[in-house]
């Protein structure tokens, strides 16, 4: 059994998230935001045209980004660094599709509270332990790597009572990746229907939210929301394992209110721009928790 000491010698590499902050979280490019104070009145049309997924729109002369279709290519941040910037962090998931459009469309807090309360009631029984059925509905293959990474020793989601299951009959949570291909829609519907109540659906990645760069086409439905009801939207192309983990914890109501400001991003991921975050990254050995 030479493997056992080999495993032990490495020591603990597992993240303590969500109980403790993880050093790797903030170094990741997670979202593009509009800089609040920016003078965005001149020539933003260029960035709108340059966006390959049409995620940028203009309302009342101010740009607005739909993170549900942003593939984080960074073209807008390069063209107009005074208007757009990369935000670090991974707490990007939202309970409502509209909330992915930033700056937020004024939506009454009431709507969000209702959505959140409804989901909270539904998932009450799942708080301690949840079984996930993953389904690929036309991903590019990278999403599966990130989902599978959740079971590696670094994220080790089993420690949080999160398990992957083969049978939809055992599943509480459906984690869908991919654009929603026509060929997978029946399988998606059947998998969803085979799951017992209560059930929750996560659209993982911009492909599953909006179709991403592919959008709609003869074989793509532009996301899964037209086929199954989506409870949590996790942007990213592909979403990083921490983004996925945050989305899962959000879905099962495991994040305290301190972790999450209502309707917006968690306060801890704000205020630190990627420049300083990336310098931490070098000094901390890629920001990996301690030893990894």
């Amino acid at each position: 059994m030479p493997w056992i000491p080999r495993g032990l010698r490495e020591g603990v590499v597992t993240s303590r998230y969500p109980r403790r902050r993880d050093g790797y979280g903030p170094v990741f490019r997670a979202a593009v935001r509009v800089i609040d104070a920016a003078d965005a009145t001149t020539r933003i049309e260029d960035s709108v045209a340059a966006c390959p997924t049409g995620a940028i729109t203009i309302h009342d002369g101010r740009p607005r980004i739909d993170q549900g279709s942003c593939i984080l290519c960074g073209r807008c941040t390069e063209l107009r660094p005074d208007v757009f910037r990369f935000d670090p962090g991974f707490e990007t998931a939202e309970l409502r599709r509209e909330a992915l459009v930033v700056p937020e469309i004024t939506e009454s807090d009431e709507v969000l509270r209702l959505a959140s309360a409804e989901l909270g009631r539904r998932v009450r029984a799942l708080r301690k332990s949840v079984h996930i059925r993953h389904i690929d509905v036309g991903s590019d293959g990278s999403d599966e790597w990130e989902v599978a990474a959740l079971t590696n020793p670094v994220y080790d989601v089993q420690r949080l009572g999160v398990f992957f299951t083969a049978s939809p009959r055992h599943a509480d949570l459906l984690l869908a990746t991919g654009v929603g291909t026509v060929g997978m829609l029946d399988a998606l519907r059947q998998t969803y229907e085979a799951m017992p109540e209560p059930k929750v659906v996560i659209a993982a990645g911009v492909e599953a939210i909006s179709g991403g760069l592919l959008g709609r086409g003869y074989a793509s439905h532009g996301g899964i929301a037209t086929t199954v009801p989506v409870d949590v939207f996790v942007p990213g192309s592909p979403p990083s394992p921490f983004s996925l983990l945050y989305g899962i914890l959000l879905a099962i109501g495991r994040l305290s209110t301190a972790d999450r400001a209502p309707g917006g991003r968690s306060p801890r991921s704000q205020g630190k721009d990627l420049g300083t975050a990336r310098s931490d990254l070098y000094s901390e050995g890629f920001g990996m928790e301690g030893r990894i």
């Binding site: 493997w3 080999r6 495993g7 490495e10 590499v13 790797y24 170094v27 990741f28 490019r29 984080l72 960074g74 990369f86 790597w145 990130e146 990474a149 079971t151 590696n152 020793p153 670094v154 990083s240 990254l281 070098y282 890629f286 990996m288 990894i292």
Partner: peptide
Amino acid sequence: ARFSLHKERVQRLRAAISGSR
């Protein structure tokens, strides 16, 4: 578990160089 850890390290290295895993 060991090889998953190695792969995670490679992915993080790729992200550190390019911003994308």
